[in-house]
Amino acid sequence: MEYLQKYQNNLSNFRAADMSQTQTAIVFGLGAIGIAFILSQTFTLLRVIFSLFVLPGRSLKSFGPKGSWAVITGASDGLGKEFAYQIARAGFNLVLVSRTESKLITLAEEITAKNPSVQTKILAMDFAQNSNADYERLKALLLGLDVSILVNNVGKSHSIPVTFNETPEDEIADIININCHGTLRITQLITPGMIERKRGLILTMGSFGGLVPTPLLATYSGSKAFLQYWSSALGAELEPYGITVQLLQAHLITSAMSKIRKPTFTVPTPKVWVSTALRKIGRNGGSPYYSYTSSPYFSHGIMAWFITCVMGVFSKRVASINKGMHESIRKRALRKAEREKGKKAL
């Protein structure tokens, strides 16, 4: 009996020691994971800071010789117009594509007046129609041109924030046709030539609406999320051919789409934002989470890093914040519409 008691005591001691070692291993393991996470986040933040504030991007001239062509969609207003001005100053000829011909004519005249050596071609087409005839006309216009740069800027959001169930069917169709079909079809027209020449740059306008789910802009948010993953996949496909693909993430910019006119620390003008984007080609800025993606403007980049790398585990909370913001925007828009309606009645 004494022997049995000693055996049981020894067994208990072994079990206690084993349990203690297991607990110690778990504590050390969790600590190591925590330290690795902190180091990873610190390294990512340092990459973001260097990308946003220190490291230069690739020069536009590295994507094609002076006198080659850049195609810009949604070129007549906002960001598209600024892309046209700044790419023309770099010496590229321009194909300007947008819906309103009169605006395109005016823009082309302004560009050639300021840059006499730059040639321009224009095409008025409504991407919402998704017309085969329009894409055939564009294909004919591009025939024989050395297209070095494509800027997929054309896009559409909701007229005001609205729940999905209340979104008009024609608005849903227009957003999908413009943001998705338009971008895919024009890119498919231009990439064969880039592949053949083994060089080129494809910039596609993304949005924070595609970075995180955005209630009351559900269709727009989904279309931009589609472009996010499409661009990452396209970038991997085309990189072996010397073609750079980059989705440009932007938060709010002063524009007709955002309905914001006054620039602030976090809301730049199109001129400032485009200038930054073109200086940071090939850099991730604040978007290390996705490949072939950049948030080039400094305040947007820091926001993108924080949302994806820090707040990613709180995605439901981020969606809730987004929802509240757009509910507020909707209320203001409805009040403004009521005021204008009252003025017309008078």
Rank of each mutant, 00 (worst) to 15 (best):
I111N: 03
T293F: 00
K224H: 05
T167V: 06
I302C: 09
A113F: 10
E340C: 07
G342Q: 15
A345F: 08
A319P: 06
F314E: 07
T24Q: 08
N153E: 03
R15K: 12
L46I: 14
P240T: 01
S223Y: 01
S231F: 04
H181G: 05
K61C: 10
I122F: 05
L211K: 02
L46H: 13
V54T: 15
N179G: 07
L252T: 10
E169G: 09
F37G: 13
S315M: 12
S275N: 13
S51P: 14
D174T: 06
F37V: 15
T308V: 09
P213R: 05
G67H: 02
N179H: 04
V27E: 08
F208V: 15
M311W: 08
I111W: 03
L189K: 06
Q8M: 09
K262W: 13
L55Q: 15
Y241P: 02
T120F: 00
L150A: 01
H251G: 07
S223N: 05
A32V: 09
T244V: 12
R15H: 07
T264S: 15
A124Y: 02
S20V: 00
C309I: 11
V118D: 05
I38W: 01
H251S: 04
K336M: 09
I186G: 00
T44P: 02
R283W: 00
Y85P: 02
N177R: 05
K271P: 04
I176H: 03
E110P: 07
G324P: 04
I72C: 03
A173G: 07
S98G: 12
S51H: 12
L39R: 14
